[in-house]
Simulated scan of single mutants.
Amino acid sequence: MTSGEDMRIVAVQMISGPEVAANLAAAADLVAQAAGAGAALVALPEYFALLSSDEQAKVAAREADGSGPMQDWLAETAARHGIWLVGGTIPLVADDAARVRNSVLVFDGSGRRVARYDKMHLFGFDNGAEHFDESRTIEAGSRVACVDTPFGRLGLSVCYDLRFPELYRAMRAVDLILVPSAFTATTGRAHWETLLRARAIENQCYVAAPAQGGVHAGGRRTWGHTMIVDPWGEVLACRDEGPGIVLAELDRAHLAAVRAQLPALAHRRLDPAS
Rank of each mutant, 00 (worst) to 15 (best):
S52Y: 08
V144F: 09
A256I: 03
H267T: 05
R189Y: 13
L196R: 00
A49G: 03
R80W: 02
V207L: 15
G68D: 12
D148I: 05
L41Q: 09
D230M: 06
A39Y: 07
E63D: 11
L92K: 04
V258A: 09
D72Y: 00
V10K: 00
A198N: 10
T226I: 05
T137I: 09
G152W: 04
A37Y: 06
A64Y: 01
L255D: 09
R269E: 14
G152L: 05
G17I: 11
V229K: 00
D54K: 02
A43E: 10
L154E: 11
E139G: 08
V20F: 04
A182L: 11
Q204M: 12
L236F: 02
V246N: 04
V100F: 04
Q56M: 14
L24A: 03
E241P: 00
R197C: 15
A260E: 14
G214P: 12
D240P: 00
E193N: 03
I9F: 04
L24V: 04
L247V: 11
L105H: 08
L44Q: 02
G36M: 03
E234G: 06
G66F: 11
H254C: 09
F125G: 01
A256S: 11
I138Q: 12
D65N: 04
A64D: 11
R199H: 01
L255Y: 01
R153K: 15
E63R: 02
A217F: 05
D108P: 10
A253H: 05
R189M: 09
A75F: 10
Q204F: 06
R8P: 04
E46P: 02
A34I: 09
S67C: 10
A190K: 04
E130Y: 13
A40V: 03
A43R: 00
A185I: 12
I228M: 07
R153P: 06
R8N: 09
D133H: 07
G244H: 14
S52M: 08
G111W: 05
G155K: 06
L50I: 02
A256H: 06
R116V: 14
C146F: 01
R112D: 15
A22Y: 03
L162C: 05
Q33K: 11
M14K: 05
A185L: 15
V179T: 08
A198Y: 07
A257L: 13
A264I: 14
I90N: 08
G155V: 12
S157A: 15
R80A: 15
E130M: 13
L167Y: 01
T187Y: 12
A209D: 03
T2F: 10
R8A: 04
Q33I: 01
